[in-house]
Design a protein around this nucleic acid. Structure first.
Lengths: 64, 64
DNA sequence: ACAAAAAGTAATTTATATTTGACATTTAGT
DNA sequence: ACTAAATGTCAAATATAAATTACTTTTTGT
């Protein structure tokens, strides 16, 4: 289950995986895993990513 | 940082910590930790809890 | 076409979420 | 007051998120 919404939001904000990683305090690989693989990030990390990209949890991580 | 919103939603749904734990497939202690302590649950668990309580991520876990 | 930046991926290690089991405290019903 | 259910909490073990290092592939710009 790729996270396409997060990737789109990141690209729209014009930041690279590496830049986002630095902003939220994780490594580039962690960001990449969330966008590409089946990964299960922590709530804290999800929140940090949302705030960095000016989105909410529902915007980036909610699925029906 | 207690999660009061989650506790309220759970009580409104009339389920105990133990029942919710069973529904989402974790132990009672994990549910208790989320409601009481400073805890950092996984996204998957947050989603499961939201669906069990008919709420969204923003409803239960978003903070500005 | 070429170089550089960005993205994908894998193996191993480290940090921490979650489990397990157990016990103490609080709450609700009679 | 008494009992049972629900909740709070702790220590130790296990599972897994995240870090680290390193390498390959794609994209992008010139």
């Amino acid at each position: 289950m790729k996270n396409k919404k997060m990737k789109i939001a990141r690209v729209e904000s014009d930041v690279s995986q590496e830049q986002l990683a630095e902003i939220v305090g994780v490594t580039r690989q962690t960001i990449n895993l969330i966008e590409t693989g089946n990964y299960n990030p922590s709530l804290k990390l999800c929140m940090a990513i949302c705030k960095a990209l000016n989105k909410t949890l529902n915007d980036l991580f909610w699925e029906e």
